[in-house]
Amino acid sequence: MINILKKIIYTGIVTEKYDGGQVPASFRGEVVVDNKVCSDCQVCAMVCPTKAIIITGQEMIVNHNACIFCGRCVQHCEAQQIRHSDNYKLATLSGSLADHTGNLLAERIRDILGRSLHIRHVDVGSCNACDFEMGALSNPIYDLQQYGIDFVPSPRHADMLMVTGVVTRNLTQALLMTYEAVPNPKIVMAVGACAASGQVFGSSYAVRGAVDELVPVDIYVPGCPPRPQALLYGLLLAMDKL
């Protein structure tokens, strides 16, 4: 017992504030493009494993929801105009939360959920990387509870579903029933490239696609997987606490 207490005291407080950890130089974040000297070879769109790059006329659009941040477009860009920045804050709002100003519904939801948020996790076909990063939010370094946010065991106790993975045929019923079980008002976060785009494993007999093909999604958090701070950013963005 004395050893346990000693270990606790010597370790001290390790919890970081949001945005406290450093982003390493090697981190592959947002795909940034300098269009000025694009040689229009379109190789980036062809080599992308998840078809996250769309070229329309002169413009190249990166769908970060589908991006797996693998760096293949960066390696193949003939004009060397594509790079990964260190920006991981790529979460976007949609659905009932999208309109920042004046939207009564969004305000009402935030009034109810803004002070504390209870989350139920639903894995609908993930590789477990997103799940582990969600789990990491509860470690003493991120300490999710410091923001008034916590994971709960039942959808009936939850305000929000965090959904990981591409929706598989075998988990469709579980997703729909879990969504149904969450009391209103409820919000849904699609965590990671599989949940947000459904494009990571292509189409197959066993997958249905992205989460928003089955239930309405209010927050998309890109990443493969999103690092814990990216998840925190998405959560605080949804609660309007940034």
């Binding site: 076909g125 598989t168 075998n170 579980a174 494993f201 292509g202 197959s204 007999y205």
Partner: peptide, 11 residues
């Protein structure tokens, strides 16, 4: 096999 994504067929 709930998370069966058909990866072997998909590739």
């Amino acid at each position: 096999f709930f998370t069966h994504r058909g990866i072997e067929k998909g590739v």
